[in-house]
């Protein structure tokens, strides 16, 4: 959109005012994330510009073999294990449920849908103390399994929502066509339904992964030092004294977010393309 030649002074102020205002807002949104990345390469343990020199020493503190590095590395391994396991569980359970919800009408369907996405709405602290109280009775505090189950519950709504959205544009006649041609239900699912809704399933999985990867409140309540995840390690560090090592860890997490986000965009474009094909 450009200014028409007949624009008045008021139009001009409005036009440039809006752009300047939005420019400042985008700066506010992105700058904090970008500004701290270079700080992780600072050779001195300060958080100010200009920097005296560059160094990788803070990354060495994460990837080296000192006692603190081992803690960081174990927390990363924990994060990966927890996030992958809970993503797989959440994606499987969530996709099944979304298929059921979209296949036929049955009583209380909306109530069930609301229930399935409720982990997203209930404040995380309430969820955390509920799980803490319950897990304490059955001895699941301080176990990876307990955290994986908890994170699965947190991730499930994202899968239900995205897969339902993908199924909303899905043509049921394709399933009928598959059955008429003699394919069993499993085969129809694998060969017809899944490829078409795959972008929805995958983005639900990505959301679930990100939710587990970021999650800290539940970990605060359910984990012992053995199960600390990387956000949990950052949390301890932030509470004591922010060291540049934490900024280095934050930078690694930002890189992961960028990868997740770009994958998501790619999936979205792919899904749009797929829908273009199914509609014609």
């Amino acid at each position: 959109m450009t200014l028409p030649p007949y624009a008045t002074a008021g139009d001009r102020i409005w036009f440039y005012g809006l752009r300047i205002f939005c420019g400042l807002t985008f700066f506010f949104l992105v700058a904090p994330i970008l500004v701290i990345i270079p700080l992780s390469f600072n050779q001195d343990p300060f958080f100010t510009y200009p920097m005296e020199g560059y160094s990788l020493r803070w990354y060495a503190e994460i990837f080296g073999d000192g006692p603190l590095s081992l803690l960081w590395q174990r927390s990363m391994v924990n994060s990966v294990v927890i996030a992958i396991c809970s993503t797989v569980l959440a994606t499987a359970l969530g996709t099944l449920a979304a298929l059921g919800l979209n296949r036929a009408d049955f009583p209380f369907k909306n109530a069930i849908y609301a229930f399935l996405i409720s982990p997203m709405i209930v404040p995380i602290v309430v969820t955390a103390i509920g799980m803490f109280y319950f897990y304490a009775q059955i001895g699941l505090i301080g176990s990876l399994a307990g955290i994986i189950l908890a994170h699965t519950a947190i991730g499930v709504p994202f899968v239900v929502i995205t897969v339902s959205a993908a199924l909303a544009g899905f043509d049921e006649n394709l399933v009928r066509a598959g059955s008429i041609m003699g394919a069993g239900p499993m085969r129809v699912f694998r060969k017809v339904t899944l490829p078409i809704i795959f972008p929805g399933v995958a983005s639900g999985g990505l959301f679930a992964f990100a939710a587990s990867w970021d999650e800290i409140v539940i970990v605060l309540f359910l984990a012992n030092a053995e199960q600390h995840t990387s956000p949990r390690r950052m949390w301890s560090g932030i509470r004591e004294h922010i060291s540049p090592t934490i900024i280095a860890a934050a930078t690694l997490l930002i890189l992961l977010s960028i990868v997740l986000m770009l994958t998501m965009e790619w999936l979205r474009r792919r899904s749009d393309r797929m829908r273009g094909i199914t509609q014609t």
Binding site: L29, P32, V35, M234
Partner: peptide, 13 residues
């Protein structure tokens, strides 16, 4: 980008 960036990372920033 901020939407996908970890809440803890943004708070730390």
């Amino acid at each position: 980008l901020p939407f996908w960036t970890s809440l803890l990372v943004r708070t730390t920033a």
